[in-house]
Amino acid sequence: MSRVLMHDVLAWVLVASTAACATVERPVAVPIAEVASEGAEPEAGPSTITTTALQALPKGYTLDERGRRMRVAFDPGNRFRVHAGWHGSVGRDFAEVENALELGFGVQLASECEGHEAQCWKLSHDVLETQVRPGGAGGRHVALTSTLIRGRYVRFARHPSVTLPTSPPLTLPIPFHIGGQFSVGGAQLFPQLDASNVSLEVFRGDLLLEFLRRPTRHRSLILGIGFRYVLDLAGDGSSVRTGHTLAPFTAMSAEFHMESGDGLNLLEISADFAPMWRDMGGWQNWYSVGLQLERVVAAVNDLPIRGFVAGRYGTRYLPFGIGGAQEGFEVLAGLSWSLVE
């Protein structure tokens, strides 16, 4: 008996190790002629950069004519980036343009479906998205916008449907995927006010409908409706004044996202409309439309530098209704560099 058991164990070990060996991707020797950077002639010319060599490269890489490896595809959904740019804002009357330098950073993490799965989750997170504009109000104040975490979860289904609990159950096909989105820990400082005035977006949650139904996240068209709660705080040294702003499932949003397969280009168009209730001022309608374009212009050590332009027109949020509901344009143009991507 024990001999049989021993035999079985050995057989399993053998099978397991053989299977493991069969699935290991062994490094492939690539016959690439590396040459000196001073322009010396390569020992073997471009003809040695064979199809085999290109195939041996990781996905998203290629070889130049001197055999040097370089990355030519990127993933803007997974990156830690810093950015710097010019921020300009102007009121609806275009009376005075306010210019500022904007610095920022943030982490984006995303996953997508493999494509062969019938159902899976498409996840994306933005962590510590932060923008700082020093020098507001004649250099005295700082404008800051930061969000601790924002998560978006969309359920991909090859054949999306809703099942009604009838007898027998009735399955109705639907033309969209269903998902959800939340963000917590938003904070905002305003250039018009000092740091004792802060606006906290305590929580935002949305129900999402995604209409393009791709397993990847390179293209999406999302409509959402949700809840939003903002807490305004103002301290005068001895007491703290509070203000509450609420969108009770009245915050509607639309977003179209498109990026090229190699991640070099990205386009995002968004629109928001939210009737909001404020404890000082009652109901107000907030809205905005925005456009964002990104393009990889260079990469340093295979880490991409993107040029970007973002524009937004809509309501500007100010705590306690300072100055009433203001409308205006905002433009941000600059460069971002992914330290990890």
Partner: peptide, 12 residues
């Protein structure tokens, strides 16, 4: 370090 430019064909 190396820089790859993406204005025109990718060049290292």
């Amino acid at each position: 370090f190396w820089v790859t430019t993406f204005i025109g064909p990718p060049t290292r």
